[in-house]
């Protein structure tokens, strides 16, 4: 169990700054997900925490103890790599036990710990196999098992599911969630570029963009009250509709955001009206793309009960309490619509 504190952490490779002044507090025992597009610095931040990269400036502490000058093995961490990083010439048992032999554990103790982890991950029948004889999902379990047996205070996952196919990804995601519940003593940091993974797994999410923290919060907070346009765009699948120009002007903002599920068909009180240019039926949901004259078509999520066909003219209105308004800096406007409209319009024209 460790509380992780990042204070003004920066990292540069030569002249390129990849992490800028990151301040973050990760609570003991929580599962924190770093999410962001590729190049946002999330993996670098993880490598700084585990000690595979040196911190350029700032202070990293675990439970108040500075980690800046500690080598990875002294930090009490385990890491699951994207590529599994299994030793190709060792069988599953040896892969899991290799890191333990150093820790002066007795052979019986090692055996017990490996067996427990293997049972927990249901790989106890594979212990004498080589990594190349395993499927992708099994390899990933071994990699997770190898991390578990060391009984770390901090667990690090670096995009652990990105090499798995879609159905395995869901299954392994569930597995990781289970491990998080069972191993309450470990703090977990999980890096992904997939916001669905982030939303489903995280206690809290840290959204990174260009080496800076955009927002930290629970999945609900990020979803319902994104504090920047970037977070609004990044979190949620399918992505939020973003309307600009005259559409936004009517609501006294630079960009108006509205999630597809917060639009309802209302012929009597239609705010926007347009032809259906495309429909996607996912079984449970029906997505329709409306051409209302905006840059990109307006995406509306309907239940499968509703029948809408291509070419039909449909009128929709937003649910008023689910509108997201952003100013020209991409920051949310919290004031209610109508309040101080002049200032908003002024900044817009400036």
């Amino acid at each position: 169990m460790a509380q992780i504190q990042l204070a003004n952490i920066s990292k540069h490779f030569g002249k390129t700054e990849v992490i800028r002044e990151v301040n973050l507090n990760i609570k003991a025992g929580e599962l924190m997900v770093f999410v962001g597009p590729s190049g946002s610095g999330k993996s670098t931040l993880l490598r700084l925490i585990c000690g595979l990269e040196e911190i350029s400036s700032g202070e990293l502490t675990f439970d108040g103890e500075s980690m800046n000058n500690k080598v990875p093995s002294e930090r009490g961490i385990s890491m699951v790599f994207q590529s599994y990083a299994l030793y190709p010439h060792m069988d599953v048992y040896k892969n899991m036990a290799f890191g333990l032999k150093l820790a002066k554990s007795s052979p019986e103790d090692i055996r017990e710990r490996v067996m427990n982890a293997a049972k927990m991950l249901q790989i106890d029948h594979l212990l004498d196999r080589l990594p190349k004889q395993l499927s992708g999902g099994q390899r990933q379990r071994v990699a997770i098992g190898r991390a578990i047996v060391r009984n770390p205070r901090v667990f690090l996952f670096d995009e652990p599911l990105s090499n798995l196919d879609a159905s395995l990804r869901v299954a392994t995601r569930l597995e990781i969630a289970k491990i998080h519940h069972e191993m309450k003593s470990a703090t977990m940091i999980y890096v992904t570029h997939d916001q669905v993974e982030a939303m489903t797994l995280a206690d809290r999410i840290c959204v990174l963009n260009n080496g800076e923290v955009e927002q930290v919060g629970t999945p609900e907070e990020l979803y319902h009250s994104p504090n920047s346009l970037f977070v609004a765009k990044f979190i949620g699948s399918p992505a939020m509709n973003l309307l600009e120009g005259d559409f936004a002007k009517d609501y006294q903002c630079q960009t108006l955001g509205i999630r597809p599920e917060h639009l309802v068909i209302d012929p009597n009180e239609a705010t926007w009206q347009g032809a259906v240019i495309h429909t996607e039926n996912l079984g449970s949901d029906l997505y329709i793309y409306l051409d209302i004259g905006s840059d990109s078509p307006l995406l509306v999520r309907l239940s499968d009960q509703q029948k809408v066909s291509k070419g039909e003219i449909v009128g929709v209105r937003p649910k008023w309490d689910h509108l997201h308004r952003f100013d020209q800096h991409g920051k949310p406007i919290s004031a209610p619509i109508g309040a101080e409209p002049s200032t908003v319009l002024e900044t817009q024209s400036a």
Partner: peptide, 12 residues
């Protein structure tokens, strides 16, 4: 990456 894994495990 397997060297990095070994480094994290603290193997000499």
């Amino acid at each position: 990456d397997i060297y990095e894994a070994a480094k994290i495990d603290g193997i000499h």
